[in-house]
């Protein structure tokens, strides 16, 4: 079962998490050329902060700033954990 958080609005992003054998980040972004690496960094740091290593993460980014990406991921992580319980 996957969980998601966020939206397709401009300045927002939609993050989907799905259990997986390893860590995989798939980044779709309207600003991938300029900020792709920064987005990946924020995602990986946040996942690492929660010790999450076995997940497939898909982000569909419409120009979200770092705080938004982080917040959406935190929500998705909590929703995933709530589902597990």
């Amino acid at each position: 079962m996957n969980v998601s958080a966020g939206s397709y609005e401009s300045n927002d992003c939609l993050i989907t998490l799905e259990p997986a054998a390893e860590l995989e980040c798939i980044i779709h972004s309207v600003v991938k050329e300029q900020f792709g690496e920064q987005i990946e960094l924020v995602l990986k740091q946040t996942l690492a902060g929660h010790n999450i290593t076995h997940v497939k993460l898909v982000i569909n980014d419409k120009g979200a700033l770092d705080y938004t990406i982080k917040a959406r991921l935190e929500t998705a992580i909590r929703r995933m954990r709530d589902l597990d319980e």
């Binding site: 939206s7 397709y8 609005e9």
Partner: peptide, 18 residues
Amino acid sequence: NITGRMFRHLETILEARS
């Protein structure tokens, strides 16, 4: 971006329907 909002809404309905 109203299509985006509707799409997102329907996506959550589909999620709820597994």
